[in-house]
Design a protein around this nucleic acid. Structure first.
Lengths: 191, 191
DNA sequence: AATCTATATGCAATTATGTGCATAGTGGTT
DNA sequence: AACCACTATGCACATAATTGCATATAGATT
């Protein structure tokens, strides 16, 4: 019966679950959520503010979150969303389902693959830019780790976030190394 | 004028470019392309066979590929697609455009992030499954590298594919290591 | 005085992706 | 003899994501 209910809610929509997960921590407005997706959980699942607002409307329609408006003067009223019992059930059922492999889509690698049809100096620049982006991401991860997860007495919830963050750090530092190698290899071709 | 032409063709559609890139190598049928997306170029840009056929129809409409039918008996006729001059121009213009960062979407990391709302033994299994998937991918990359790119006299086109493949190998072996570490960290929480 | 940044919400239109289905013969396995 | 995998193409529908826009005010900077 649970499974039928889950089917009814639609099969594959991990954005919904990512939002619900954020709301298990504390009730939030769409704006708060959008900021969260620009930072912490966004490291593992990217979403724009439009996506967040649209998904919140759907979650409200399905009764997975409850929303109440907070009066404000000067700016639009805040709408605070709270996860419901049904929402928590959905999160739990989702946690039991197998994970899909993340879908790979990297233009930079396609350009390397297509080296013979590509402007090489420009590609070189693009690799440098990407290297900087990964370095920046790595630095941001490190800052967060030191700020929030460097203590000894971490809750289980914090430990989970730390594991995810640690994976992010490993992957980013690997990307930095690998891009350096790719730039070297590309340089050797130029000669 | 070139830029206007490019705008006209639609801004961001790297699937189109990935297909065109494949066709610079040799003319191919949709079936061949779909297989290529299951293997080589698909390591860097995933696409299903439906996506490939749909995109081929669009490329034909825009005059970026030319298609001719080959009679076959027993099974549907093969339709062989050849890249046009306009198609080659699009590839070259695309190579000059900055690359977007690949969008991160990994359910497994979201589940780690959401550790407190997740079934831990099931998550453990899911991590093991993912580990196997990355090991399999790594093995596949190695097989291809040894089979096609281990010689000394590589063309420039082959060298590009080798760089991309090398990055793939680095990333996958990193994922294998990191997942191992994550599984260990998760185990320590159980205690 | 004008511009920029942050707060706060959301629609409309387009593009991209995924799922299920339909067709149809050949050759190999159980 | 029945079933499955491979070859080969593609439609229809549904869901997801991106881009551009729209509104509105406070406070800080130039």
């Amino acid at each position: 019966m649970h499974i039928i209910a889950y089917r009814f809610f639609g099969e594959i929509m991990a954005l919904a679950e990512a939002i619900l997960v954020c709301l298990t921590d504390r009730p939030m407005s769409g704006y708060d959520l959008a900021k969260t997706f620009d930072a912490s959980i966004g490291f593992f699942w990217r979403a724009s503010h439009q996506q967040v607002y649209r998904e919140l409307a759907r979650l409200r329609d399905k009764g997975l979150v409850e929303s109440r408006e907070i009066e404000q003067s000067g700016r639009p009223n805040r709408i605070i969303h709270t996860i419901t019992g049904a929402g928590e059930d959905v999160v739990h059922l989702w946690s039991l389902k197998p994970c899909r492999m993340p879908s790979v889509k990297d233009e930079l690698l396609v350009k390397l693959y297509a080296l013979d049809n590509v402007d090489i100096p420009v590609l070189h620049e693009q690799l440098d830019i990407r290297l900087d982006q990964h370095r920046a991401k790595l630095a941001a991860y490190h800052r967060i780790k030191e700020k929030f997860y460097d203590g000894q007495n971490l809750t289980r919830a914090q430990k989970g976030k730390l594991i995810a963050l640690t994976m992010g750090i490993s992957n980013e530092s690997q990307m930095v190394k690998t891009l350096g190698k790719a730039i070297t290899m590309l340089g050797e071709i130029d000669e």
